[in-house]
Design a protein around this nucleic acid. Sequence first.
DNA 1: CACGTATTTGAATCGTTCTTCAATTTCGAT
DNA 2: ATCGAAATTGAAGAACGATTCAAATACGTG
Lengths: 204, 204
Amino acid sequence: MSSRKSRADRRVDLIEAARRAILRHGTQGVHLHHVAEEAGLTSGAVLYHYPDLSELLVEAHHAGMERFYELRVKRIARLSDPAEKLVVTIRSGLPVGHDDQGVRLLNELGGAAARNRVYAVLLTTLYDRQVAMYQTILDTGAALGVFTLTGDSVVISRNLVALEDAYGYRITARHPLIGPDEAAENILTYARTVTGNTLQAAAH
Amino acid sequence: MSSRKSRADRRVDLIEAARRAILRHGTQGVHLHHVAEEAGLTSGAVLYHYPDLSELLVEAHHAGMERFYELRVKRIARLSDPAEKLVVTIRSGLPVGHDDQGVRLLNELGGAAARNRVYAVLLTTLYDRQVAMYQTILDTGAALGVFTLTGDSVVISRNLVALEDAYGYRITARHPLIGPDEAAENILTYARTVTGNTLQAAAH
DNA sequence: CACGTATTTGAATCGTTCTTCAATTTCGAT
DNA sequence: ATCGAAATTGAAGAACGATTCAAATACGTG
């Protein structure tokens, strides 16, 4: 039994616990006691804070997405060269390995989104934000003359995020030939042709 | 209560029923009685044929994948022009609408594959077969001088399948701006640059 | 057409999970 | 240091799903 906490603190804990429980058992497979165990509490205590488990699960997914997105933004915040930004952004959209928690949580929702409107909105919103992120990088690079775009930056950005997403699934499913490095290289190949930039991963 | 059937016939029915039940409730959310209802039987009867529900679910997913893949192969079987084949293949990899059953079933597995090795293998195998399908088209087109590939046909094929997959998720999640037409056009934009072919959708 | 077998039902049982709630404990405020 | 409110427990009960199995039934075969 973990020590007593304030309402706000406990809710944060529970969201974290729910996130871990989802990764272990799947969004559909999580049970109240799984979350309770992860949090070091009783089922009753969880219910005291979240009378409806499904609401807690939504919050956990929401929090996971925000974390994922914020991490990506932070990674490129201090970079100035658009080419470098693009390379780093592509990397940050891919799982680090087949057990990458951030990506695995997102992948949980792919199927559920077709049945659950709330998850559909979450996932769609995340996609759009990531597309906007790429678009900013591409447009800036084009304005600076670093990139020579072969087409609409929206289309390119949508394709880039799509590629990340799909390779994320392949990697978390343990494709024997496609790991983070191979996926990054495949996406970079695409990025090179549409930007006209060699996009070397800058040493630092 | 549907009329009595032979073992073989009933098993086929049950796989179909399981497929529908999965689409309604999710791979993790399906219960024995859901499958029984879809089949017009009792839970006991389902158990008589499949003592282990999870095995039936695996078979349902397997059957769904085979159907999906075979349909794609059949669509291009009678076409000879590589450019036309490529256009048709891209289309056949995308859902027809947000409620496309074939794609929705595949999407169900994305998350589960990270936790379940059997599903991971199924999904990975399907991916590889689709990549091989594209590769054949690209290599043939290149040999005939119809395509001028900008790079390795494996990489291009992997990217094409990846794009299909990801847009499939967006469409089934009801993205307000991305439907089958938009997705196809985005993928075609990529295909055009890497093949050097205008890839007009042939009228017929 | 009657027999025997394979299929299906329906009910009983068991285990699990959710839900409720009174009792207890802890902590902060006074 | 005490009081009161908030958090947590643990047990009891309700609901649900899986599982088992004897009985009923339909079907093919001889």
